[in-house]
Every structure is written in C-alpha cells, then in structure tokens.
Design a binder for these strands. Structure first.
Length: 442
RNA sequence: GUGGAUGUAGCUCAACGGCAGAGCACCUGAUUGUGGUUCAGGCGGUUGAGGGUUCAAGUCCCUUCAUCCACCCCA
C-alpha cells in the first residue's frame, strides 16, 4: 500500500465523473442557450494572466487569494491564475478594441481560481458564467441583464427566486445623508451586507463597533430598511433624500423596463441592504439568493463603469452578471430539478459480442447504429451474455443489441430494451429506425 | 487567516484499553444465450501518517496531514 501515492486532488479542486459532468453540461447548456438568445457571443481567455493584470483590481484582501503560477526556469514574466472573468474582459476590450464592435456583448464560461479555504458551495477552482455588455451607459443594458437573469433562473426550474436590486450611488447617498465620512463607506458596505445574517440590531451593533456615530447609524438604518412593494420603497427614500444623483431615477427606469418586459414582480425586489462585496461597482447591482438550502448567492452582478479605465485611457461603461454554477448545481441536486432523461451515461445502445466468430457482425451492428445517430458502445470482450447485459444495466444504457449464432444465421439482430425487457428482431438495415423507436418508448 | 468537529474495507458506519466487524458494492457459482430479485461462496485492512503512555492502543496523550462545519470573504 505504501508504495502508492495516496490519490487525492489538491485542496478545493475536484474531479467530475461522468454523471456529474452530464449535470454540469446540462446547466451550462441552459445558460449558454439563453445567453446566445439575447445576442451574446462567446469569449475565452487564458487561464493565466500577467500578475500585473490582476493586481490592484480586487482589493488587498482578495489579492491574497490569487494563485501565482510560475514556471521554474522562466521567471521573466510573473504570472497568476485568473481570479474572475471580469478583469480578463476588461483587458481584452482594451487590447483588442479595434476588432470589436461596441456595444460588445460577450459571455464567458470558464474556471477561475481562488485560494480560499474550501467549504460547501465554495471551491478553489470553480466555473463562472458571465455575460456582460460593454459600451452602453444607459439603464437599458442593466435591464437586459436582469431580464436575462430572470429567464435563465426560470429555465433552470427554480420554483421561487428573487433578484435583489440596489444601486451603489444610492448607498453612497444614504451614507452621505446620514453624515458618514466617505472613508467609512467600505465599513458601511461590509456591515450592511450582513443584514440577512445579523438582522437590523446586529448591523447596528457592528456599525457601532466600527466607530460610526450613533445618530448616523439610526438615520441610515431607517432608510436602508425601507421596504415596500414595487417602487413604493423608492418613494420612501426619495422623501428623505430628495432628487439628485443618487441612483433613484435609474432604479425607477429599471423598474419600468422590467415591467414592460413582462418580468413577474415576484422575481425582483429593491433591497437597500444588499451590497455587493467587490469594490468596482458604480451603478445598479444585482444578486439572487435562494434560501431553501442556504448556499449563499447564485448570481451576482452590476454596473462597473470604471474598470476598463484601468487598461485604457478612457473607460467604457459596462454592466453584467455572473452565475455561480457550482452553487446552482448543488441546489439542483438538493431540489432534484434535473430533467428525468438526464442519466449517468450518453451511451444509448450496447452491442454484445459472443465470440471471435461473431464479432464481425457486432462491428457492423455498431456501425449501423452509429450511422443512425445512436450512441453505440461495442462490448470489447466476449464475456457471457448475462455479464454484458448486467454491464449495460448498471451503466444505465437503455438498449442492448444481441447477435449470436441464431440471429446471424437468421439474418437478424435482436434488440432488447432493459427498462421493460421488451425484445424484437430486426434486419440490420432497419436497426437504426427500430432503435430510435424503442428509445422513444414505442 | 481564526475557531470547532471528524478520520476504521471501494462506500456508509460498528467495536467497554483485551482476537478489527456489519450492511451495501465488487468477484465467482446456482443459470454453458438474458440484467435488476433470491441463495451459496469469495476478494477486500499496517484503523490517515508519525511519535508517546501501557503487559496490551482503533480506543488514552502529543504532533502532523486531510475532510466537514462556523467565522472572514465570496460564486
């Protein structure tokens, strides 16, 4: 035993066996389909970026989680593994702008890496599914992102979900209104973000612990907790803050557009206690939380108009969202929301082999099935028939094609459907059609 | 990074400081051309690793590694 290396993936990194892979492919397929339906085109970028591309974008804490990736003998270019897909997007836009047409709408589904301590729903390598619109400053772009989020979450079959919407400028305005110094805004964000977990009193306590004045706390808590159906909560805030560059106008416009697009009112909600952690957001922000099994947020996004300016003289307005497919998959697992036909294998038919004298015929059967578009696996060893059928059964292959000496001398193939044991004989030239019919359940 | 819990067969878990076990899975046969049920048999372990206490350690102590949970942070 000790001569073997203990088989183990690195901490926070996972293998995906076929059954899990099929589920991932299903989820990614649903999301991709709707991204494309909304006019987004695919983009991919290297897993490694120059260290200087990533650093200075995420904040000090996050930077400590970036994996560096050095090759032993070429230390000339300091490299790091990508931490998200947003900074690579900004780099690509700045680098290839002559080849892109604005507005640039791209989606990007790829693994990213963070050196966090792993936990359920949190890994060191995980996929992000991002869709972003570069070059549009107006709320139409934000509205399209939210409309698309709503369609994807519905498509995945979540019975109930709420997209929380807030606005970064509104949070800033509330802070200013309450008399909070600008340099304490990050403290405000961090504490308010825990509202769901700590409750109003917990947030008050934490703000106080951060050294924020009592009267400022109570003034802003009243505003942050404003909650009323539809745009009524916006009215409450406006009564206190008045009109101005506080994001309220954009949120009203957003509500108007969502309603016009037919987004059901129960699927979105203005929630002034929702804060996105990342510092680069500048406008409307979005987040979806599903609370049944609590795995944290499954989507996150918003407007970040200044990020591209890190790579380019003039920035470009950008808005977008990210789907956390690892958590979505964990939720679909828990709620069992996969379509029934999603099994453990893609193989639709197993072609049995009796022995050396019949294997030519088995090869021809497999080929006939494949020509008919059926995923056919040829049994590569001539074990006894019961073993071969048992193999198909355990693997979840629905059909077995049998051609022993009896069938061969009669010029036919026997097809057996394992679900109900139904069998029929067909000519080789009809096998594709017959197999299709059996798979369809007739 | 901080705190807590847990590591025994491929998997889920038992075993008072006293011979390491069960269920499931796997393999073989009953059934030489028919799976899922049943029956019989079989394979499978340096109890995560290292050290200590003891006549004796899976069990107690220390160290270390890993996993899970909470915090921090996030998808």
């Amino acid at each position: 035993m000790s001569q073997f290396i203990k088989p183990r993936a690195p901490k926070g990194f996972r293998d995906f066996l076929p059954r899990a892979m099929l589920r991932r492919r299903y989820v990614i397929g649903c999301i991709t389909e709707i991204f494309e339906r909304f006019g987004f085109d695919p983009l991919d970028t290297p897993i490694l970026e120059l260290r200087e591309t990533l650093f200075g974008k995420y904040g000090e804490d996050a930077e400590q989680l970036i994996f560096s990736a050095q090759h032993g003998r070429s230390a000339s270019e300091p490299l790091a593994m990508r931490y998200d897909l947003t900074v690579p997007l900004a780099r690509v836009v700045a680098q290839h702008e002559s080849q892109l047409h604005l507005p640039f709408k791209r989606y990007h589904i790829a693994p990213v890496f963070r050196g966090e301590r792993p936990q359920r729903g949190r890994y060191r390598e995980f996929y992000q599914c991002d869709a972003d619109i570069v070059g549009v400053a107006g709320v139409m772009a934000d509205a399209e992102i939210v409309i698309m989020m709503q369609q994807i979450l519905s498509r995945l079959g979540f019975p109930q979900f709420v997209i929380k919407i807030n606005h970064r400028r509104l949070l800033t305005a509330i802070g200013a209104f309450s008399g909070l110094p600008a340099d304490q805004l990050p403290d405000l964000y961090r504490s308010v973000d825990k509202y769901d977990k700590l409750g109003a009193d917990g947030v008050r306590a934490e703000l106080a612990a951060r050294g924020i004045a009592e009267d400022a706390i109570s003034r802003m808590m009243d505003l942050l907790q404003a909650h009323a159906p539809g745009t009524a909560s916006l009215d409450q805030i406006e009564d206190a803050l008045g009109k101005g560059e506080n994001g309220l106008g954009e949120l009203r416009e957003l509500a108007d557009l969502l309603a016009a697009a037919g987004v059901p009112a129960e699927h979105y909600d203005f929630d002034f206690t929702m804060v996105r952690g990342l510092g680069y957001y500048t406008g409307p922000i979005f987040e979806t939380v599903i609370s049944q099994p609590n795995l944290g947020s499954i989507t996150g996004g918003g407007r970040y108009d200044n990020l591209i300016g890190m790579f380019r003289r003039q920035s470009l307005p950008t808005t977008g969202t990210s789907f956390g497919i690892e958590r979505i998959i964990d939720l679909l697992d828990a709620l069992d929301l996969y379509p029934a036909e999603l099994g453990g294998t893609l193989v639709q038919a197993l072609v049995t082999v009796f022995g050396a004298d019949t294997r030519h015929e088995s090869l021809r059967i497999a080929e006939a099935l494949r020509e008919a578009g059926i995923n056919a696996e040829l049994h590569l060893e001539s074990r006894k028939l019961g073993r071969q059928i048992a193999y198909a059964d355990r693997k979840g292959i629905p059909l077995v094609a049998i051609a022993g000496s009896e069938e061969i001398s009669a010029g036919v193939v026997k097809l057996r459907r394992l679900a109900d044991g139904y069998e029929l004989f067909v000519d080789l030239e009809d096998i594709g059609y017959a197999a299709q019919a059996l798979l369809a359940g007739s």
